[in-house]
Design a protein around this nucleic acid. Structure first.
Length: 271
DNA sequence: ATGGTAGTCGCACTA
């Protein structure tokens, strides 16, 4: 059977209402089939549905929240099923998933993992404790998923952890900075092991090369300083090990007018 | 350099 290319993009948009024109531009330029958004920062009813529908993305799943967080999946491919899971019983909107209506099926999980505050100590920093608890719950959840060898799943999103030495501008300088602490990295590795996830971005870019998807708003010149981190991820299950055909980190998007601090990551899968 | 900037429920919180 001939394979079909399904292009999936993930982007922490940092307010979908403020950056709807940038999102439309992204869809026009990159033509993903599926766009996973994080930090939409609005309730479901305030999501700019019509803009996406007019752009040809008629299938939309939203897990919104007033003011903070919120995730959504907009797609040209219909959904067989959509679901969302609440983590840590906090009422936060940080996960949504869809089953795409394609031969063989594909489940797409879209996550926005808590950032974790500044202090990397769960005893004195409740936000860091929340982040760790969230990761534990994610890991336990995927352990609970039956490990079927033919399970076709993609996990994308802003996971707020840069696990590898060259996922940050300075490994040494960031060892005690939340997003790159050994504890978080260890927990992310356990999460990866929970379902034998494959880090798609790093199958295309050698781990010895720098690779970032986020640059702080606080830098004077983000491009010149280039103090980035790879906080955004695309993972696939082993059944899809041979599916990824290309991967692109849209660094130029960080230079757009009124840019998000994250840039889109786009992967093409042959399914 | 413990600041800096950005977005939202803006006079405070999240990132």
């Amino acid at each position: 059977m001939p394979k079909r290319i399904v292009k999936i993009a993930t982007w922490n948009i940092n307010s979908v209402r403020l950056r709807i024109e940038l999102a439309k531009q992204l869809l026009t330029n990159e033509t993903p089939d599926v766009l996973c958004l994080q930090e939409i920062k609005c309730v479901d009813d305030a999501f700019p549905l019509k803009d996406f529908q007019k752009a040809g993305y008629e299938h939309i799943a939203i897990n919104g929240q007033k003011g903070y967080h919120g995730v959504a999946i907009v797609s040209r491919i219909p959904f067989l099923k959509t679901s969302k899971k609440e983590f840590c019983a906090k009422g936060d909107a940080r996960h949504i998933s869809v089953d795409l209506d394609i031969p063989g099926g594909l489940t797409v999980h879209n996550f926005y993992v808590p950032a974790g505050g500044d202090e990397p100590d769960p005893v004195i920093n409740e936000k860091f404790a929340h982040k760790l608890a969230f990761l534990t719950e994610m890991t336990d959840w995927y352990k609970g998923h039956k490990k079927k060898a033919d399970a076709r799943m993609v996990l994308v999103g802003d996971l707020n952890i840069a696990p590898l030495e060259h996922d940050v501008w300075s490994h040494k300088a960031l060892l005690k900075i939340v997003s790159h602490t050994p504890l978080e990295v260890e927990m992310m590795n356990k999460l990866i092991a929970s379902h034998d996830w494959i880090d798609v971005m790093r199958t295309f870019v050698d781990p010895a090369e720098k690779l970032y998807s986020w640059w702080s708003y606080r830098a004077k010149d983000w491009n010149a300083a280039d103090k980035g981190r790879r906080l955004d991820h695309v993972w696939v299950t082993p059944a899809l090990a041979d599916a990824p055909k290309s991967m692109k980190v849209l660094r130029e998007a960080r230079g757009w007018e009124r840019a998000s601090d994250h840039v889109p990551v786009i992967v093409a899968l042959a399914l």
